[in-house]
Design a protein around this nucleic acid. Structure first.
Length: 214
DNA sequence: GCAAAGATTTGCT
DNA sequence: GCAAATCTTTGCC
């Protein structure tokens, strides 16, 4: 069941929490199995008021998709090395996005491990990682699902898209959510630096860390 | 045009 | 606990 776009048209703080427990799916492609992960950690970034958001400069070539319709992928490169996946939120015309910081691998664990070895350094270390740590960080989610900036603009709410969001399975218990300050936004002024807009499933092993463990 | 900094991760001290 | 790796985007001259 695809993730309903109207849930992402909501205010970004609500959309972010709604994404916890949802599934990120990348269909099988040549040489790689289907990959599925449960979203366990996210961060909300809003419009021009939010001094930590990419939208703080207004509409630019990089962040333009944040100002468009909800449910679209926004992938950017940080620190010249790591791609990060965001889901665009808010109605068309208003900026907003949710950064997917960590997922729990459910299917295609070895495909995730293989692409992380191919893209990153430290193959020996990655080979020894337990499955629940293969996508526990924003740069690691994009690596495990083989996403980069060229995936910006993909419609994650289209059932035909090879990369998409699916609703949490029916009957799954509602996750217990913990909120903390966002990570890595020391450059922003208060209150934006410290608002509790990072959301995670309480105590989940796949939440990024160790410094951010909840 | 150029300089600075960044929604991170890893490895070494 | 700290610094390196690495390059795009943004802001200012």
């Amino acid at each position: 069941m695809v993730f309903r776009r109207e849930r992402l048209a909501a205010p970004t703080l609500e959309a972010a929490q709604a994404l916890l427990g949802a599934l990120l799916v990348h269909d099988a492609e040549a040489g790689s199995d289907r990959r599925v992960g449960r979203i366990v950690e996210v961060e909300a970034y809003t419009g021009q008021d939010d001094r930590a958001s990419h939208a703080r400069f207004g509409r630019t070539a990089r962040n333009a998709v944040m100002f468009g319709p909800p449910g679209i992928a926004y992938v950017y490169l940080v620190y010249g090395m790591y791609d990060c996946l965001n889901v665009v939120t808010e109605p068309d015309g208003r900026p907003g996005a949710v950064l997917v910081r960590a997922v729990e691998p459910l299917e295609g664990v070895e495909a995730m491990r293989a692409v992380r070895i191919a893209r990153g350094r430290g193959a020996a270390r990655i080979r020894g990682l337990p499955a629940h740590r293969l996508a526990s960080g924003p740069g690691l989610v994009a690596a495990a699902f083989d996403l980069d900036r060229s995936d910006t603009g993909r419609d994650l709410c289209d059932p035909a898209s090879p990369v998409r969001l699916e609703a949490a399975p029916q009957g799954e218990p509602v996750p217990s959510i913990v909120a903390t300050a966002r990570v890595g936004v020391h450059y922003a002024t208060d209150p934006w630096r410290s608002v509790p807009w990072r959301f995670a499933i309480a105590g989940h092993l796949s939440v990024s860390g160790p410094r951010d463990r909840v």
